[in-house]
């Protein structure tokens, strides 16, 4: 399969790779939300961490990904898009926009879903740590 130039660019120069510390440390930090999701379709794993400022804006985001090139590109792009947004704005990002931006073929749509899910899971984690999560927020789309 041929990859789009944008996928190749994110693969070669992934943005915002990393984490805000070892998994045991970030677990305790209230300003950090962690989302680790696995794709049931192919068994790949994506980890997204957000650091949220006092003003409720996402100051920084970091990702790690064990997955195909499209999954790496989707998560790299997701970190770019959510930085500077409020957590609620970030929740608006849908996988279809990622698919469009990266020109992903149909078999790779689930890789973008993984990115959308990792954003939501990271935000839920942040909200839970800060006592902001009530059950109605715990949506499971698709």
């Amino acid at each position: 399969m041929a990859y789009s130039e944008k996928v190749i660019d994110h693969y070669q120069n992934p943005r915002n790779v990393g984490s805000f510390g070892a998994s045991s440390d970030v677990k305790e930090r209230k300003d950090v939300g962690v989302g680790i999701v696995g794709a049931p379709e192919c068994g790949d794993v994506m980890q997204l961490q957000i650091r949220v400022g006092d003003d409720g804006l996402i100051e920084d985001a970091k990702f790690k990904c064990f997955g195909c090139g499209s999954a790496i590109a989707s998560s790299s792009l997701a970190t770019e898009w959510i930085k500077g947004k409020s957590v609620d704005e970030a929740l608006e990002i849908k996988n279809t926009r990622i698919v469009e931006e990266l020109s992903l073929p149909p078999v790779k749509i689930h890789c973008s879903v993984l990115a959308e899910d990792s954003i939501r899971t990271a935000i839920e984690d942040y909200k839970r740590k800060n006592g902001e999560l009530d059950e109605s927020d715990h949506t499971h789309a698709h």
Partner: peptide, 24 residues
């Protein structure tokens, strides 16, 4: 590997075959 969350876990001494991922 620099991008891999699994490599980090491995380096932290966690057995990745024992983890159950939160899947959607």
């Amino acid at each position: 590997r620099a991008l891999s969350p699994l490599y980090d876990l491995h380096n932290e001494g966690i057995d990745i075959t024992k983890i159950e991922w939160q899947s959607h």
